[in-house]
């Protein structure tokens, strides 16, 4: 088994190279890169200057930067070399944990990402755990009480949650429970007075801030997980080995929990790692509504602003997490299913 996971880890390398190379190339080919931005900014600046100073210099407005200046900028951003060469250079830096410098903030990318990681990790891990903690028991209940009142009503609720996009839920939660009724803080991760709180107050503060975003994050994932749990459990309840268990003298209840349950966890285990990395990457819309300073929002804004070092940095982090998540999933499956042997 150890050798299997070592091989899986080695496979991360080519996948990682593939993903980053593609995105790196795209950042080069898509119009609107940092140099074009600077040119247009300079244009605007000289245009406003021109307005205030009169109309005399309008001819110079067309080319606010000289070709030499543009060449210098290209060199600064590494755009003067062929794509592949600069990719290799970028990669070499990444290997020394240097993700470059933000073209917006002029801070090291890694420092910026490091600031956002705890918040994202908090939401990623808590969302995943809560989703499993709620969906597994709910799915079991629905399977055992198939077609009962509780099964049908919970299906309706869960499906409405599935149909509503997470950011719509976020907006609804923001407008009423938070803004209108004042039950929850208006976004953010912690209160401003956080430092002055006692430990218990600090914990409550974090929870209080995160309840609404967590609901928004989870609500879409409920349906898939709950129905996956319900349907696999029902399949297993109808299976031969459950009949064997009952024929041995087990009650239906014990047959469910001692036999069917673990078998039904197998498909859920295959999702575990992916879910963690998915939630960790976050949703920029939910982050935006609740003013959460996480990776999702950072990545999105950097993309809009063409801050490519950050875009690539976020990509590096999330793709590594995603690939590790896959391996984590394999590990979870091996944990619950003895038939899975890695060698």
């Amino acid at each position: 088994m150890a050798s299997y996971f070592i091989r899986r880890l080695l496979l991360v390398i080519p996948t990682f190279l593939g993903i980053t190379l593609v995105v790196f190339t795209i950042t080069r080919l898509v119009p609107g890169g940092p140099i074009e931005r600077i040119i247009s900014e300079a244009q605007q600046m000289s245009a406003t200057e021109g307005d205030s100073a009169g109309t005399s210099q309008s001819a110079a407005n067309d080319a606010p930067l000289s070709p030499e200046q543009i060449e210098m900028l290209k060199e600064f951003y590494g755009f003067d070399k062929p794509i592949f060469i600069s990719y290799i250079e970028w990669l070499g830096k990444v290997l020394t944990l240097d993700l470059g410098t933000s073209t917006r903030y002029y801070d090291p990318v890694w420092d910026i990402i490091k600031d956002k990681l705890p918040v994202s990790a908090y939401y990623g891990v808590v969302t995943t755990i809560l989703t499993y903690l709620i969906c597994i028991p709910l799915g079991v209940l629905k399977a055992i009480k198939h077609k009962s009142f509780i099964d049908s009503t919970s299906s309706i609720v869960v499906l409405i949650g599935y149909a509503l996009p997470g950011f719509i839920v976020a907006i609804i939660l923001f407008v009423w429970p938070a803004a209108q009724w004042d039950w929850f803080p208006l976004g953010g991760f912690i209160s401003e007075e956080f430092e002055d709180f006692t430990a218990a107050e600090q914990i409550w503060d974090v929870i209080h801030h995160s309840i609404l975003p967590l609901i928004a994050y989870m609500i879409g994932g409920f349906a898939t997980m709950t129905f996956l749990m319900k349907n696999t459990l029902m399949d297993h309840l109808a299976s031969d080995y459950i009949r064997t268990a009952i024929a041995k003298g087990l009650s239906f209840r014990s047959a469910v929990f001692k036999h069917a349950f673990r078998n039904s966890l197998i498909p859920l285990a295959t999702h575990f790692g992916n879910n963690i990395s998915l939630f960790l990457a976050g949703s920029f819309l939910i982050e935006k509504v609740f003013n959460i300073d996480g990776l999702g929002l950072l990545g999105f804004e950097s993309l809009v602003e063409r801050d490519y070092p950050i875009v690539l940095g976020v990509l590096v982090i999330t793709s590594i997490l995603g690939l590790l998540g896959n391996i984590l999933s394999d590990f979870c499956v091996a944990l619950v299913d003895p038939r899975v042997k890695f060698d």
């Binding site: 031969d240 080995y241 064997t244 041995k248 003298g249 078998n263 003895p338």
Partner: peptide
């Protein structure tokens, strides 16, 4: 009935390949 099944009356099924729980020893 739980005390009858497996104790007084036992049953072997048609399909041995699926009659055992795959995740238990």
């Amino acid at each position: 009935m739980h005390h009858i099944r497996g104790n007084r009356i036992s049953m072997i099924f048609q399909e041995p390949m699926t009659a055992l729980n795959p995740v238990h020893r």
